[in-house]
Amino acid sequence: MKKETVALHVAFVAATMLLPLILTSYGLKLTSEVLIIAMFVMSLGLIIGFAGLVSLGHAAFFGIGAYTVALISEHVDNTWLLLIAAVVTAGIVAFLSGLMFIRSSGAYFLMITLAFGQMLYAIAYKMEGVTGGADGKAVSESFNLGFGAIESRLAFYYVAAAAFLACYYLLRVFLSSPLGKGVRGIKENESRMTALGYNTHLYKLTVYSLSGMMAGFAGALYAYFNQYISPDLLHWMFSGQALIMVIVGGVGTLLGPAIGAGFFVILQNYISSYTERWPIIMGLLFVCLVLYGRGGVIHLASLVWSHLQSKRRTGREKSVLPKEGSGFESLKG
């Protein structure tokens, strides 16, 4: 690695670690949420941007992670075990569902993943005896990695930040590895990859499972963070929000989706304090995003961003806008 790149990464990690110095308590909580959602959105960005699998049911895996922690924490209190259980469960479900879904592509894949997510939503909603139904469930177990319970917002921020950085660098390594390169090749040209001798289904299945595991991990952390879970975590609206975060942040980039997540979570927090009509606003954002194109979105995002910055401190110091040319065309395939 070049010296500048190393310096950039050191700065990135340092900035993440030093951020609490300038954050209020509320800012810490919000940033922790951003980081957790960012991991989830990054996992979706992985399959959309690098494998060309556009899913509208990715919240399923986030929800599975969260529900695993919530349901098992009634019997087990070891945080490590619960996290592993969440990741493994989400991974297994992703693997098995991927086994069936990955044969289809494009609109079919989208519809099937949507139906799958809604199926889990319906189950969580209706199995009141187990999942608490529409009311959801409280998660009372505290987060404890063996150094005592982590209860302060600052401590949890560091947990979220460490997890986020770990996921980010894991994905970086993954994408530069032979397997990751293969996945990108499949998105570029699947028929050629097959002709070259790649078992493309296996690659897609692997990356889909990895993505599901990461989403499950994010969901598990979210259960601890929010101390409450509900079927909304599985709902297609949440999947759709994640999709839009990926697109706003930049398809085909790693950090882009994370930035999209930051933008949306903060925007939602901001707007929700004024009006309950967040779905309308989000819907309008979708429509504007589609109609006014890529450059426009990034432009729009940066405008709103600077507006936000001037109105109140949002806690994020650097706004790295996504690269040009990372929009919809790259989604086709």
Partner: peptide
């Protein structure tokens, strides 16, 4: 405005469904 662009259509109608429902 977005014919021929599959994903953009999905996003557009997805956004509309939120707007209508809300």
């Amino acid at each position: 405005r977005v014919y021929g662009r599959e994903l953009e259509q999905v996003l557009l109608t997805f956004g509309l469904s939120f707007i209508f429902a809300d």
